[in-house]
Simulated assay, not measured.
Amino acid sequence: MAMPRKIKVEFGEVFPFGVYAVSEVAPVRDFDRSTKDKPVHAVDEETGLLVWAVDVMDADPETRKTQRQVTVKLLAKVQPVLPDNKTGLPFTPVEFEGLTATPYIAENGNRSNLAWSFRASGVHAPKGRAERAA
């Protein structure tokens, strides 16, 4: 059996209570090719698209404190733009399209645990949720 490295997932399955962007979308640095004086933008090996990152806060009240904030990497030719925040909240509610999850083992001292790396093909305002929060 061949398992894919990146597993396609629905946004609502991973984040049933939604997420809030707590940073701007920023380029991801390619640490293998960058130097101190010359940063190089990371490129996704499979798609050839540039890699961008945005930090989000999971709104699930049951999420452990150490797992509440995650980084989602966005693959796009140009820098993705977060939707306008029309809620009056300090953070912007967002949803991701084309979401994939890649499992890995996170080492923390003497402890190891399963963690997930998330990638997406796009970001947009939540459908219906933003209007209820306003």
Rank of each mutant, 00 (worst) to 15 (best):
M1C: 08
P4W: 06
R5N: 12
I7M: 15
K8T: 09
E13N: 14
V14Q: 14
F15K: 00
P16W: 06
V19M: 06
A21P: 10
A21T: 08
A21V: 06
A21K: 05
V22Y: 03
V22T: 15
E24F: 06
V25D: 00
V25S: 03
A26I: 08
V28M: 08
V28T: 08
D32G: 07
D32Q: 14
R33A: 12
R33M: 02
S34G: 05
T35K: 09
T35H: 11
T35V: 06
K36M: 11
D37W: 12
D37T: 08
K38P: 00
K38C: 02
K38A: 13
P39Y: 07
P39N: 05
P39K: 05
P39R: 01
P39T: 02
P39E: 01
V40D: 02
A42P: 00
A42K: 02
V43R: 02
V43M: 05
V43S: 00
E45L: 12
T47N: 12
G48F: 08
G48K: 10
L49Y: 05
L49I: 01
A53M: 08
A53D: 09
D55R: 14
D55H: 11
V56G: 04
M57W: 06
M57N: 03
M57V: 12
D58R: 04
D58W: 07
A59Q: 10
D60N: 15
E62Q: 14
E62H: 14
K65S: 13
K65M: 13
K65C: 03
K65L: 11
K65Q: 13
T66L: 11
R68L: 05
R68Y: 02
Q69R: 15
K73S: 11
K73G: 00
L74C: 05
L75S: 01
A76G: 12
K77Y: 05
V78L: 11
P80Y: 02
V81I: 09
V81T: 13
P83R: 01
D84F: 09
N85I: 04
N85H: 04
N85R: 09
G88P: 06
L89S: 11
L89P: 06
P90L: 06
F91S: 12
T92H: 05
T92E: 04
P93A: 04
V94E: 03
E95W: 01
F96N: 03
F96P: 03
G98P: 09
G98Q: 08
L99S: 03
T100N: 12
T100S: 15
T102Y: 12
P103G: 04
P103S: 07
I105W: 13
I105A: 13
E107D: 08
S112T: 13
S112Y: 14
S112K: 15
S112N: 14
N113S: 14
L114T: 09
A115H: 09
W116V: 00
W116Y: 15
S117M: 10
S117N: 12
F118K: 00
F118I: 01
R119D: 06
R119G: 00
A120R: 01
S121T: 15
P126V: 05
K127Y: 11
G128T: 07
R129I: 09
E131I: 14
A134I: 09
A134P: 11
A134R: 15
A134L: 12
